[in-house]
Amino acid sequence: MNRRSLPALVCASACAFAFLLPLNANAADSALALLQAGVRAPLTTSYTAQVERIHFGARGSRQTLVRIEHLAPNATRRTYLAPEAFYGNTIVQRGNRRYECDRHHHRFVIRVEHDPDDLSTAQNFALLARNYRAEYGQDEMIAGYPVISLSLINRHTGEKTMSIWLERNTHLILSKVVFHRDGAVASEMRFEKLRYTNKLPANTFSTSAPSGYIVVTNNVANRSQSAGSGETDTNKPPTPIDPHFLPEGFALIQTTYPTLQGVPFLHLLYSDGIRSLSIFENQHNTPAGVNGFHAQSVKIGERDAQLVADGANNLLTWQGAHSSFTLVGDLSKPELLKIANSLR
């Protein structure tokens, strides 16, 4: 190459560029590139819409209807229209801060969440791509817009885990259906009354609490940094315990030390890119309280445990010999029990 003249180089590179164009176009058309475009669409697309979500459970379903106003890249306001218990409640999200206004309890909760970095987001997408195959389905119309459908198939089990529908032009995800392992629908999300606009009133994303409301600050980001900072003996983080069984494709993606209601926990988050599992461990007598939930009594070895279903998620909690454990994830009950029994 060094012997080539400049015009030859320019000509050759032009040929190469000309060739690369269709290659990139192919990549953009691929299901995986499309999926990623869908994930990133809210960063560049502003809109208003009404979104319906339904979680199907063993004993009924839970439905919410939310009006969304989104200004790219990261300001979102959600106003609950249904069910009646939430009517009028709002959540304003600005970057990693979330402001929840609960009109029924006159409470204003400010949450500072983790700020996801690009690397972890990319790695988690890589995890998804490693564990799931995307297949194109039939094109449809949703909320008056043409959409492309994709099914995400678990590579290890061959099971369809999720179907999503992306708007053909903006790639915004307009609908999503999550399936249980037995093929039953676990949850469904669908956009209605979609309108693309970035002309939203200035006060849409106001973050001030209404007068007379109790303001609660809930700093997730700080809570996670609390390990080993001169706490009392009982606040020492517990020994990390690794499950010997995890569903195929699951990897540890995050280790944090949150404090829930003043109690320090070790929190391990595992995922295969779509499905996930949290293992909470602490050294107090604090398995999760299941009052208000329909709990099923089960055994982990010799010990009593409680199993709770919450829409797509199941929760399993028990007191071990030296620690208490709470497992949460969109996994089946047998999977959770198997993981629990493999904790050593």
């Binding site: 691929s30 995986l32 690397l119 997408f125 890589a126 195959r133 297949e135």
Partner: peptide, 26 residues
């Protein structure tokens, strides 16, 4: 059925990022 190109282990550039033109040798 359609099949998609799947990215490599630990290669974030496979997810939409082609290398910037200015720094790539011809």
């Amino acid at each position: 059925r359609y099949l998609e190109e799947i990215p490599e282990d630990n290669s974030p550039q496979a997810f939409g990022g082609s290398r910037p033109l200015a720094v790539t040798p011809i």
